[in-house]
């Protein structure tokens, strides 16, 4: 159960999106987010949906999974969209007491709905196609210029990758301890709140003990291999930008420009 949480959402694969450099994907995701926020007209909205569809196909992620990522926030999106429907001024289509719906409001609400869903769906693609480790190492390289400002980028990324590396291990350990205590009759979901909290001590304490033990062992192992911080360290698998990455960047920039153009074309809304 906990294992499912910690693998993240990564689905191993070999799609176009999977093979892009994590740095490219991080930057393009950022670009996509801006693009979504700049989308204003009906035409660019349709274009945005088309893009999303293309990206999903390129990532070879089942559409079902993408929408599963969106599902939890649908209530929030709907409430936001509804508020917009009632608060934006324009031609009044319908009114009752202080409530009124305008054509502009309807359009804004709907656009917002589509934009937010596209945003979440689009961002979920990067987590579906990039392993957490790849993301961490991509982030490290993107932040590398900050080293000049004496920002400890390599140390931070080492910490991050150790954390990511040990999350599944700890989750597994947690599962094991829970099972062992259940086998001794532990109950986690009944009784007063105080009892429920108390029921977790037999799980949390051994987990901490083992986390500390692991931390000490790892520190020793790292020191034995003469780790001395990030200075001059190279990577086993250095990230390399390929032709694929440049093509993707060009495509995204072109799409970005198209959105701006579609925004400026005169339309009914």
């Amino acid at each position: 159960m906990t294992r499912d949480l910690t693998v993240g959402q990564f689905i191993p694969g070999h799609s176009l999106m999977h093979r892009l450099d994590p740095r490219t994907k991080l930057m393009l995701t950022f670009l996509f987010i801006i693009q979504v926020f700049l989308t204003k007209s009906a035409l660019s909205l349709i274009f945005l949906l088309l893009l999303l569809w293309i990206y999903i196909v390129c990532a070879q992620v089942p559409a079902r999974k993408v929408f599963r990522a969106v599902r939890p926030i649908i209530p929030v999106i709907i409430v936001t969209a509804l508020l917009n429907i009632f608060y934006v001024s324009g031609h009044v289509l319908w009114h009752y007491a202080f409530l009124r719906i305008t054509d502009q409001g309807l359009f804004t609400g709907f656009t917002l709905l589509v934009r937010l869903i596209t945003l979440i769906a689009g961002c979920s693609l990067i987590t579906y196609t990039t392993s957490l480790n790849a993301l961490a190492s991509g982030l490290e390289q993107l932040l590398a210029p900050l080293k000049r400002l004496h920002f400890p980028v390599s140390e931070l990324s080492m910490t991050l990758s150790i954390t990511l590396r040990f999350l599944p291990t700890l989750a597994e350990e947690l599962d094991r301890i829970i099972e062992a205590q259940k086998a001794r009759g532990a109950q986690f979901a009944t009784g007063t709140i105080l009892n429920r909290i108390r029921a977790f001590f037999p799980v949390i304490l051994p987990l901490f003990m083992s986390a500390f033990r692991r931390a000490f062992e790892l520190t020793n192992a790292i020191e034995c291999r003469c780790y001395h911080g990030g200075e001059g360290r190279t990577k086993l698998h250095p990230l390399k930008l390929g032709r694929r990455d440049y093509a993707a960047v060009i495509f995204f920039l072109a799409a970005f420009a198209m959105t701006l153009i579609f925004n400026s074309i005169r339309q009914p809304f």
Binding site: E173, Q181, A183, R184, G185, A186, P202, M209, S210
Partner: peptide, 25 residues
């Protein structure tokens, strides 16, 4: 059920208390 490496399930500060966990449940 005694798991692989069961020493990982020990959590009390005395041996007596830890053995008592199952029977107390």
């Amino acid at each position: 059920l005694v798991f692989q490496y069961p020493e990982a399930q020990i959590f009390e500060d005395t041996v007596g208390k830890d053995i008592a966990y199952g029977p107390r449940n």
